[in-house]
């Protein structure tokens, strides 16, 4: 197989040199070439280190972002109530400073700015009694942070919406006062519904499908009554205008404050729509 032209060994130049050290058979170039794969592998690993680390960090971040909707699925019990009163699912800016603790003990200060700038709102009970007790920093998913953020936005939005609707319905000053009263009553009733739900949960009662349905019914009933009251303020020709009014724009996010104290209980509940008890045979 081997021709003389492939002989590289020193025997060509030294015919009597039969046995020789193995290291003599390859050249210096060959020796260096044998190191090439190791150098290449080293370079590939070191070169890929930084991009791989960055990629891993990005993948972690993406996984967390993907996980959030799944987590929010667990919270959808509370979200069902908060979405109805126009509170976002996550606060865009959560305060990292400790906050005063929220409890179920009522206080007399009013949390609500109401659409009725002229008429003062009925005082709603609030849940801050241990105002000096620090709470852990709020997360974007924390109900307190979400309500605070919704309130800021709501104040501006409700003023604009109120001004637009007063102009559109052409209400007199007396009718305007009644308009504001109706909305204040609506917020007070919604707050009462939420407070009742929170009290039930705080007392250890389970949130059954029936309880949830009844609470929704109360909320819907309050909204329907508000539409009726507003409809009675305007002539029959303008009744159609009132039905265009988006009442949820006027719901004060503070009505959900009673739920802050029981949000942990609501979050631990199974998703609605999923069967909690086995189907009867």
């Amino acid at each position: 197989m081997m021709n003389s032209d492939c002989l590289l060994t020193p025997q060509i130049r030294h015919p009597f040199f039969v046995t020789r050290p193995a290291v003599l058979v390859y050249t210096r170039d060959m020796k260096s070439a044998l190191l090439f794969p190791f150098i290449l592998l080293f370079g590939l690993i070191i070169g890929g280190w930084a991009p791989n680390e960055e990629l891993r960090a990005v993948k972690r971040e993406v996984a967390e972002l993907k996980k959030r909707p799944a987590d929010s699925g667990k919270e959808s019990r509370i979200d069902l109530f908060t979405r109805m009163v126009q509170i976002p699912d996550r606060a865009k800016t959560a305060s990292l400073r400790p906050r005063p603790a929220a409890t179920n003990t009522p206080s007399t200060s009013s949390p609500t700015g109401t659409p009725a700038a002229s008429s003062p709102p009925p005082p709603l009970p609030i849940t801050n009694s241990h105002a000096l007790t620090p709470r852990p920093p709020t997360t974007p998913e924390d109900l307190r942070a979400r309500i605070d953020e919704a309130k800021e936005l709501w104040k501006t939005r409700v003023e604009i919406a109120r001004a637009q609707w007063l102009g559109r319905l052409k209400l007199s000053p007396e009718e305007t006062a009644l308009f504001d009263d109706t909305l204040n009553t609506m917020n007070a009733n919604l707050y009462a519904s939420m407070q009742e739900l929170a009290d039930r949960l705080a007392s250890g009662e389970a949130l059954t499908p029936e309880t949830g349905t009844r609470t929704f019914n109360e909320i819907s009933d309050t909204l329907v009554q508000s539409y009726d009251s507003l409809g009675s303020l305007v002539p029959e020709a303008q009744r159609g205008e009132v039905s265009q009014l988006e009442l949820t724009d006027f719901i004060d996010p503070a009505v959900a404050e009673p739920l802050i104290a029981v949000q942990d209980k609501l979050q631990n509940l199974p998703q609605p729509g999923r069967r909690q008890t086995p189907r009867a045979p």
Binding site: M2, T9, V25, M30
Partner: peptide, 10 residues
């Protein structure tokens, strides 16, 4: 018989 003629690496 082989490495007598060529390098072991080859």
């Amino acid at each position: 018989y082989v490495i007598f003629r060529i390098s072991r690496a080859s």
